[in-house]
């Protein structure tokens, strides 16, 4: 199995700005213009991020793309699948019927219920079409970063 790259979370450096969510939503709404998108309510996706905050600690967590992903086993439609080329756990909104089995078994609690189009499951896809997930690229403090399958940090330089 190809191992996916992963997003590592350094909760000690999360500043709680939640920009990751903004950029995730923008990216998945296929918008280039943040302002227009928000102003004209063209938001076509929810963020794949679960943001948690208590006192001074906060972090943003998204699908871990588990090696032994329980959501894959639980999915009754095959909508949740492992992408052979990248090793990611991806989700096909067309196929999904919204049975919430994946919500039930995800130990990280990161499968959301989509409110935007169809009432189906929704989660992080590690930004399929780009090198750096939008959240990682825009985190001002590198509180989230990507590592390759060997756990080596991938940087822009």
């Amino acid at each position: 199995m190809v191992k996916p790259k992963r997003i590592i979370i350094k909760e000690e450096y999360c500043i709680g700005c939640r920009l990751c969510e903004i950029y995730c939503v923008t990216k998945h709404s296929c918008a280039k213009e943040i302002i227009k998108m928000y102003k004209e309510k063209k938001i076509a996706s929810e963020s794949g991020i679960c943001f948690e905050e208590k006192g001074s600690i906060s972090f943003a967590i998204q699908c871990r793309h588990c090696d032994d992903a329980p959501c894959l086993e639980a999915c009754i439609t095959g909508a949740m699948f492992r992408d052979k080329d990248t090793g990611r756990v991806l989700h096909n909104k067309e196929k999904c019927v919204g049975c919430w089995m994946c919500v039930m078994v995800c130990p990280v609690g990161v499968v959301k219920i989509s409110q935007s189009e169809k009432r189906v499951a929704s989660k992080c896809d590690l930004c399929i079409d780009r090198e750096f997930p939008a959240c990682v690229e825009n985190c001002p403090n590198e509180a989230i970063y990507v590592v390759d399958y060997e756990g080596k940090k991938i940087t822009k330089e």
Partner: peptide, 13 residues
């Protein structure tokens, strides 16, 4: 409201 309920499953398991 069922989102994040999987975390509890993890606690049980």
């Amino acid at each position: 409201k069922i989102e994040r309920s999987g975390i509890y499953a993890g606690l049980i398991k």
